[in-house]
Write a protein that binds this DNA or RNA. Structure first.
Lengths: 221, 221, 221, 221
DNA sequence: TATGAATGAGGTTTCATTCAT
DNA sequence: GATGAATGAAACCTCATTCAT
């Protein structure tokens, strides 16, 4: 499902979504997602319900959650969702966007308040918490499915920028090795954090710790 | 799909597959999978085609690849697959089994030929190569879906045993930290290695390296 | 197929269909099936086609007719049928419902216009005609398959009520023996009437006549 | 399933089975089924197991019981069944044949020992007992499915002959009405007797009684 | 603009029948 | 003769997506 690769899908995607994505991408450069200039009150209410419903559904069933289910939770018709989010990935992006912004902001804050190595460790925890409540998010991110391309672009674009700052600072003062790019690190961290509820609780955290130990110079541990 | 949880499914599964799994599990203890006493020539040929086709399909589309597709690739009817592998997980296990045996054996060999830290690094590469050609394998392993329980049991059982030996040896001579269990490590390594063809080629290897650096004491790097 | 007996089926059935059945059952008490408040024009058209197609298919191949076949006849997708009738039995009920209402009403009419024995004979012909065009209906009714429980409940509930009135009247004036319950009679009549096109045309009618002769006192024949 | 009507089936049927059926039909005229002149001991043993297994399977699941199931019960391969009984109906006939012969013989015996009306009532009970243990037999008999043509031919041929004698005797002495043919009667009786385990126990017997009351003149009841 | 009915490809699974051994 | 592996059509059902209203 994640991996459907069909000419039609591609074409549809390109045709219909470029607008949505272009808009979103631009906004990603500098500002949080902007609402359309004027939105009818009921439309705004719907948008809100949909996002909330989708968030719950994603948390429970992963990003493959049924659209019908999401629509039902939100108390709207499926068509309403498709109108705002022509692609599933658009919905995913929208759902996670705010929290992601927070996670990105957290990177900024931590960098300014802590030495780089410390900041990195703390931020890894932020990310882990973000991912832990978003089952399937990491898989989607890694799937290579063209439908999730924008997802990867968005998330990595936003986060990598901030995290790279921390890495650079760490490289400058010698506490963090300098041969790892932020994007690769985020990928790895999100992979390690994407555990299943049935997994041992601390596995993610433990292995994340090991990874960071490998990244941070021994003297500053 | 991954998350179907129904009493009936469970019961069916147990009823119908216990033989298959028991046989497989026993064989996992010490020997490669044994063929039935006498197998018709065409049956053997088909078994081979099916495994090969499934391997390709899994590599391309992940472990959720359609049975119909696999059957078509193998040039057999779907029924043929279901006869030998009543559950999807049975097929997955069978497909990956041989290579897994090799990977497990490799762990043994490396342990006897190299110092623990070195052996671990080399073996991580084996695993990475194994996983790299098995898209979705890692996800299935982590999914928590009861259908993949046997998969997790099989693979982790076989591998963790061998890898723990390496870890223990490393703990004994102080080159590997002793607070990480083999199972957690395998999970983490398989997560990091489960990249997409479109991903930068060396990302997996680079991040795996970082993880191992965190695991292996600096003096022995 | 008729005999599938699985907890899951039961549960699913109850969960998903209770609405449909509750609605139907209530309507069975006093009024014909009511349409949903507002039905789209095409939906109404489709509902009609589906019922007509199903009726034909059931007549030709019995109530086990393939859903795909019915959908094709109706010129709709299978999903359309499943949307309105989540279970095969729901469709069967819907198909036969209108005519059944007519048959039940006929019982009322006949009772008020004819002496009981006469009314019974005439009504038996109504039922025979109803059944004759519904191959497999009687078998489904008798199958004991839980899926057809509602079918049996519906039909017998609706018909037995009316027919019992006739029987009671006949018992009162001594023209009909009083030791036979309406439900048993309906069962028997539907059995006898469930003939095959290839059977001699009048077999059903003839044997029905014999049965009624055994039920109606000789003096009033 | 009962009602598959396809050109291919027809053609196959005619081509392959004529021999089997011709042989069987002839034997039906005067003698019980004859075994092939010489049958290997193991073949005879298998034939026996298959018939027994099929009988059980038919009783449990009706005449649509899975061939695989029957073969498994008999401890033989499905091919073995197909060798002896190229068509499902051939197996059904063979399975029920002996008991049917007994039922037919019973008709003879009863006719010679009782007055016609009495004999008819008693025989109806024999038939009811026969049918009661053969779920689906009656439906198959009435299905009109060409595959069951031989079944109908066989059974009705054998039974109707004997029962007609009773009817004729009853017509001669005025105790049984003379306008009903044995074949129609057998059909009707088997219909009424084909109840479901869940049905009220005595429904079949009660309604059969009513039918016979309609057939037997009041003075001789 | 919002709705949800309709679509239909696609999934898994079963099983009567054939045929290589 | 006997076996049971293989076949593959066909069943049921689901759901992402479209589009008439």
């Amino acid at each position: 499902m994640l991996l459907t690769v069909s000419g039609t899908v591609f074409r549809n995607y390109t045709e219909r979504c470029s607008d949505f994505n272009r808009r979103l991408w631009m906004s990603a450069q500098d500002t949080p997602v902007t609402s359309p200039r004027r939105q009818r009150a009921d439309a705004r209410r719907n948008t809100e319900s949909v996002l909330e419903a989708a968030k719950l559904a994603f948390a429970e069933s992963g990003v493959d959650a049924s659209m019908r289910d999401i629509a039902a939770r939100a108390g709207v018709g499926v068509g309403t969702i498709y109108r705002s989010y022509p692609q599933r990935s658009d919905l995913i992006i929208a759902v996670f966007r705010r929290e992601l912004d927070a996670t990105a902001a957290e990177a900024d804050r931590l960098r300014s308040e802590y030495p780089p190595a410390e900041a990195l460790r703390l931020w890894a925890q932020s990310l882990a918490q973000f991912v832990a409540t978003k089952r399937g998010f990491s898989s989607a991110l890694h799937s290579g499915d063209p439908a999730y391309q924008p997802l990867a672009g968005q998330f990595l674009g936003v986060l990598a920028l901030k995290v790279q700052d921390i890495l650079d600072a760490g490289a400058a003062d010698g506490t963090i090795r300098s041969d790892i790019r932020a994007e690769d690190l985020i990928h790895a961290l999100s992979r390690l954090a994407d555990t299943h509820p049935a997994d041992p609780d601390d596995r993610a955290m433990r292995m994340t710790g090991v990874l960071l130990d490998g990244l941070i110079s021994p003297t500053s541990r």
